[in-house]
Write a protein that binds this DNA or RNA. Structure first.
Length: 700
DNA sequence: ACCTTAATAT
DNA sequence: TATATTAAGG
């Protein structure tokens, strides 16, 4: 590759296109896990890199020795039996002076920092995405320039082009040797590039263009890490740049991004200020939100399938893209009807029976647009959760997992008096009512499983609940007279430290309702699968039993996918929640004598063909026993005490049938428009629970 | 010298 | 739309 070729290739990269010379770049991939190794290698190859993969660090070093001079870059796993990635990097650095990229599922900041400080040029949190590795050529090029430019540097003309930022840090900083070395290489890289640009000017008078920085998730995370490390108040472009230590990245790039980030923060703060229900504690909460890395397309899903089979390293990437729906025009059309100050909820796609209520709209999801910045990775200062709410102070806080400390705080603030958490759907009379509560989604260990959604259940999921000891229930107001209440085991359990995954579930895209519970007398241990291959199977749980360590499981699932979409970025908030209350259209209610229920929905006519694998019901919303043991208080409600049980089309017990009815109703409604026409189903998606992480796979 | 902000360009 | 650039003021 001659200089001109490379130069033009470099320019091509300005449009975020991969320069074709990557097919000259030889990458050694090291991972003891064959699956990951294969995946990463394959991904690299799709970007036209030359790839050699080895299963262990020893082989890696041997390969490097055997092919001395061939390789440009080493991509290695961190955790390997013979020698970990750190050690391998040291060896590679000492012996071959090659740049090393680390991969690991470990997204702990400390580990990432240690890696970077140790000289790793780039840290990729598994799962590795194609985008993560698309541009690794930059590291190879940077390193090569660092070596080859030395002589040219002398003859190159001094002076910077406008906009080109001199890396003054290399002289002034008190960095480690490794850092200095990297910075040196970086500076050389820049100078080399600049030199080429000058060549351009001479040769063809084409104004050179720097490659436009694409703020990939990982890059953004590096940015956030830097800010977190430096402190928001002291985080200025230069320092961020120094900390990020990304070859080719300029201070202007960082400044631009920082500007955007600050605008975002301001907007979030302003939104919050306007929300009456938002107390500071909410802001301080660490939400398990926006872990968009958990939302995958098919390709990524397939990769995860592989990893599912090799669960050695399932981690959550801190790299995330968080794109709530409201930003792309898919406003969630929830309406809240409230004739009194207690509020109620109306779902948009069925008839609301409580005619006395006047409707008012829910606003859009908060945090649309630049929502990646909202994602809850550790460096997100505000850890803000997007939320629904209306101008009347009603808030639907989509809260996912929270840290232990927050529970304490939250509970102190909770004036509902029923042991529940005071968020979820709340109105502006917190403390004076105990109507609607969506309980916090708590981190609970859960087993792997795969939900397959072949259509789009469209519902919100609200809860009333019983308290910790299951002895009393949150009363429902008359304004909810038609609302079924799926009372689940919402007893709270403060997750222990090992469960306090802030990244456990996505927040705004995914609100997970896998709520565990302390064992109570009313709850049965659960080992059942949920709706496996039968019943109302469009939500079929085809995986292993889901439950927590105590065998306790929530009894309700609902999901909401706000917009049908074929891409991650335009997908709307997805919600799965355990506890649920639902308002049934009166036409679909019947009196179920056996259960003395006035509000038992009738299964509506199915849409389309029904067979054992498809039907109007797309989710199994709960299961187990349906009872009405609280008629004095909740005489219009259905409660499900037991965890979900297998629903079998061929042999449905009475209780199960009831639940099935609910399922059918709910889910069929989800696809009915106001005229009771069924809406076409959205693209299929899947929900996977893998190693306590919930992932949504959207079809692409 | 660098940062911030706003406006505008690409 | 996201990022870059520029200009002006601190």
């Amino acid at each position: 590759m001659d200089a001109a070729t490379e130069r033009s290739e470099f320019r091509q990269s300005s449009a975020n296109t991969k320069p074709s010379f990557v097919d000259m770049i030889n990458i050694l991939v090291v991972d003891d896990d064959a699956t990951t190794l294969a995946i990463v290698s394959a991904m690299l190859k799709t970007w036209s890199y030359r790839v050699v993969s080895v299963r262990n660090p020893i082989d890696a070093l041997a390969t490097l020795r055997a092919g001395k001079g061939i390789f440009d870059l080493v991509v290695t796993d961190l955790h390997m039996p013979q020698m970990n990635g750190f050690e391998l990097q040291k060896h590679v650095h000492e012996e071959f002076k090659l740049p090393v990229i680390m991969m690991s599922a470990d997204d702990k900041e400390s580990v990432i920092l240690k890696s970077l400080e140790g000289g790793v040029v780039y840290y990729i949190v598994k799962p590795v995405s194609k985008d993560d590795i698309k541009n690794v050529w930059q590291y190879a090029v940077a390193a090569k320039k660092g070596k080859s430019v030395t002589i040219e540097e002398i003859e190159s003309a001094p002076g910077e082009a406008p906009g080109e930022v001199e890396d003054g840090s290399s002289e002034t900083s008190s960095d480690t040797d490794e850092e200095k070395q990297e910075k040196k290489a970086e500076a050389k890289f820049k100078k080399a590039r600049k030199r080429h640009r000058e060549d351009d000017n001479e040769e063809c008078m084409v104004a050179p263009k720097k490659p436009k920085v694409v703020w990939t998730n990982s890059l953004h995370n590096q940015f956030l890490l830097a800010i977190r490390h430096i402190g928001l108040d002291k985080a200025v472009p230069k320092r961020i740049l120094e900390f990020m230590n990304v070859p080719g990245l300029t201070r202007e790039n960082v400044a631009s991004h920082l500007q955007k980030y600050r605008i975002f923060l301001k907007r979030v703060a302003e939104k919050a200020r306007l929300s009456k229900c938002l107390s500071e504690r909410v802001f301080r909460s660490s939400f398990a939100l926006g872990h968009p890395a958990l939302v995958f397309n098919n390709v990524q899903r397939d990769q995860y399938y592989s990893q599912l089979l090799n669960p050695q390293q399932m981690g959550t990437s801190i790299a995330s893209t968080f794109q709530p729906s409201a930003g792309n025009g898919s406003t969630l059309a929830l309406t809240a009807a409230a004739s009194n100050n207690l509020g109620s909820i109306q779902f948009p796609n069925y008839h609301q029976s409580s005619s006395s209520n006047s409707s008012r709209s829910f606003p859009q999801l908060m945090g649309s647009g630049q929502s990646r910045l909202l994602s809850n990775n550790q460096a997100n200062i505000l850890c803000q959760q997007p939320m629904l709410g209306n101008g009347n102070g009603d808030q639907l806080l989509c809260q996912a997992n929270r840290r232990t400390a927050d529970f304490g705080v939250q509970q102190l603030m909770n004036t509902f008096g029923n042991g529940g958490m005071s968020f979820g759907l709340m109105n502006n009379h917190i403390g004076t009512n105990s109507l609607m509560q969506v309980y916090p989604q708590q981190s609970q260990p859960r087993q792997n499983g795969v939900f397959t959604f072949t259509s789009n259940p469209f519902s919100y999921n609200f809860a009333t609940s019983r308290n910790q000891n299951s002895s009393s229930y949150t009363p429902l107001s008359s304004s909810f007279e038609n609302m079924g209440s799926n009372v689940n085991n919402v007893n709270q359990r403060v997750p222990n430290s090992s469960h306090q995954l802030v990244s456990d579930f996505a927040g705004s895209q995914i609100l997970v309702g896998l709520m565990g519970s302390q064992p109570t007398g009313m709850l049965n241990n659960i080992t059942n699968n949920i709706n496996i291959g039968g019943g109302y199977p469009n939500v079929s749980l085809t995986g292993a039993p889901i439950g927590n360590n105590n065998g306790i499981f929530n009894s309700g699932y609902m999901a909401q996918l706000g917009a049908s979409s074929s891409s991650m970025s335009s997908s709307a908030g997805f919600e799965i929640s355990a506890s649920s209350a639902y308002q049934f259209p009166p036409s679909l209610l019947k009196n179920n004598g056996d259960n003395q229920q006035q509000n038992v929905p009738v299964l509506p006519p199915p849409a389309g063909n029904i067979n054992d694998q498809c039907g109007p019901a797309n989710m199994n919303v709960g299961g187990g026993n349906v009872e009405n043991s609280h008629s004095g208080v909740m005489d219009n409600t259905i409660t499900t005490d037991a965890p979900p049980t297998l629903i079998n089309n061929n042999n449905i017990s009475h209780e199960q049938e009831l639940v099935s009815d609910i399922d059918g109703l709910m889910l069929s409604n989800l696809f009915m428009d106001q005229q009771n026409n069924y809406e076409p189903p959205p693209p299929p998606f899947q929900v996977h629970i893998i190693n306590q992480k919930l992932m949504i796979f959207l079809s692409s």
